[in-house]
């Protein structure tokens, strides 16, 4: 996932981050599990073009996202 603006999804827990990753993968979307830049554990990184549909999907699946940042 190189080039362009990327979105970072921050979660309360690593389990939620991994749950979100699995949900996005099943929905045909690409997201990377990366080190959480704000602390220990994980965050998700994805193309900003897919952010809206990713958040819609996660909302539908009941996976809470704590914060979204743009990189």
């Amino acid at each position: 996932m190189s080039g362009g603006v990327r979105a970072l999804l921050i979660f309360r827990s690593n389990a939620e981050a991994l749950m979100a990753h699995a949900a996005l993968s099943r929905g045909g979307m690409t997201a990377e599990v990366i080190q959480n830049p704000h602390g220990c554990g994980y965050a998700l990184r994805l193309r900003v073009q897919t952010l809206e549909s990713a958040l819609t999907l996660l909302l539908a699946r009941g996976v809470p996202v704590s914060r979204v940042e743009l990189q």
Partner: peptide
């Protein structure tokens, strides 16, 4: 837990 490590309270 590897989450909210800034807190001394259990999640």
């Amino acid at each position: 837990t590897g989450s909210q490590s800034e807190l001394e309270e259990q999640p």
